[in-house]
Design a protein around this nucleic acid. Structure first.
Lengths: 109, 109
DNA sequence: TTTTATTATCGTAATATTGCGATATAACAA
DNA sequence: TTGTTATATCGCAATATTACGATAATAAAA
C-alpha cells in the first residue's frame, strides 16, 4: 500500500493530477509568483526571498522543470529560470477544459 | 523536517497550493469526472467504477469535501454527492487569476 | 428485532514528500 | 592553479499520503 494506483486511471486523469500535484506546494507557487514578478529569475535570489535552504529550492525547481512549466539556461556561473509560456498556456487550457465541463444544476444535495 | 513550512508563505499561496494538492491525485480527478458525467453520484457507484476499496474512496471524498468542491446529503441508506457549483466556479476563477498574470515574453532562456 | 446495505472512521503498513547538511560539479576570478 | 560562487545531487530524518481490512454507525427491509 501507500503507492498511488496510476494504472487504474486514464492517461488524461493521471496527467492532470500530476500537474495539480506539482502546483500543490506553497513553495512552488511562491517560486512561480517570484518569477512572474521579476520577469526572470536566478535560483539564488529565491534562497534569500523564500526562507528555504538552497537544496530545497533546487528540488522544487526540478519538479517545476519536470512538467515543463519553467525552463532554465546557464548564464555564466548561475542559471536563469523563466516561465515556459507555451506550456504555461497549455496547462491553463487543460485546467479550464476540466473546470468548464457542464454539469447539471439540479443539484440533488 | 518532512513538514511543509506553511508559515513562511502567504495565505493566498497556501490556499492555492491546498486546492491544487487536493486535485493532485488521479482518483480524485476520476471521482469528479464521474460526478460530472453522472450529474449526481453515490459513493458505492465509485467503488465499482474505480478499482479502489470503499474505505479509500471515502477518504478521497472527504478531501474533496474539505475544500468544499463537493457536498453530500443523506438519501436514505446512501449518500448523494454532487459538485458544489459556487465553490467550483470560485476555484476555476482563482486558478485563472493565477495563470492569467502577465509575464514578459522576452524569455531569457 | 434482526438482517442487510451503505458510508465513515480507525489502525496500520507501504510508499512518497519535504527539508536540509554535506558534497559534487561547473564556471568564472585572482 | 587555487579560490570563489552558484547550482545540483546524495543521503537521511521527519512527516505526510495512500490504500485497505476491520469495525462502527446509520437507516431501510424483512
Amino acid at each position: 500500500m501507500g503507492i498511488t494506483k496510476t494504472e487504474i486511471f486514464s492517461a488524461h486523469e493521471n496527467n492532470l493530477a500530476t500537474i495539480f500535484k506539482v502546483l500543490g506546494h506553497p513553495a512552488r507557487i511562491a517560486i512561480l509568483q517570484h518569477i512572474l514578478n521579476q520577469k526572470a529569475c536566478i535560483c539564488n535570489d529565491l534562497v534569500e526571498e523564500l526562507g528555504l535552504a538552497q537544496a530545497t529550492i533546487s528540488q522544487h525547481l526540478k519538479e517545476l522543470k519536470n512538467i515543463g512549466l519553467i525552463k532554465g539556461s546557464i548564464e555564466g556561473k548561475s542559471v536563469c529560470y523563466c516561465i515556459n509560456s507555451s506550456v504555461w498556456s497549455e496547462i491553463q487550457l487543460k485546467m479550464n477544459q476540466f473546470f468548464s465541463q457542464e454539469f447539471s444544476l439540479n443539484e440533488c444535495c
